Amino acid sequence: MTDSAARDISLRPLTEDDIPALFEIQLDESAQHLAAFTDTRTARDAEAFGKKYRKILADDAIVNRVIEIHGEVVGSVATFPIEGDTELTYWIRKDWWGRGVATAAVAALLDEVTERPIHARAVEDNSGSVRVLERNAFVRIGSEDSFAPGRQATVTELIFKLA
Rank of each mutant, 00 (worst) to 15 (best):
T114M: 05
E124A: 15
I141P: 06
V130R: 13
L133M: 15
A104I: 04
K94V: 00
V101T: 06
A107P: 00
S143G: 00
R135K: 15
V132C: 03
V132W: 04
G142H: 08
P117N: 08
D125P: 10
V123N: 07
V130P: 04
V101L: 08
V113Y: 14
N136I: 06
D125A: 04
D111R: 15
V106P: 04
G100L: 10
V113R: 08
E115D: 10
A104G: 12
D111I: 13
A104H: 10
R131T: 10
S143F: 05
V130S: 12
I118N: 07
R121K: 13
A108I: 03
K94F: 05
I118C: 10
I118T: 03
V101Q: 04
S129R: 10
R131C: 05
A137T: 09
T103D: 13
S143Y: 05
A105P: 11
S127L: 15
G100A: 01
R121L: 02
K94T: 07
R116M: 09
A137I: 02
G100P: 04
F138A: 12
A137S: 13
E115N: 11
E112D: 12
F138P: 13
K94Y: 09
L109I: 13
E115R: 15
V132M: 03
V113I: 12
A120L: 06
S143A: 13
N136F: 11
A102R: 00
W97K: 04
S129A: 09
S129N: 05
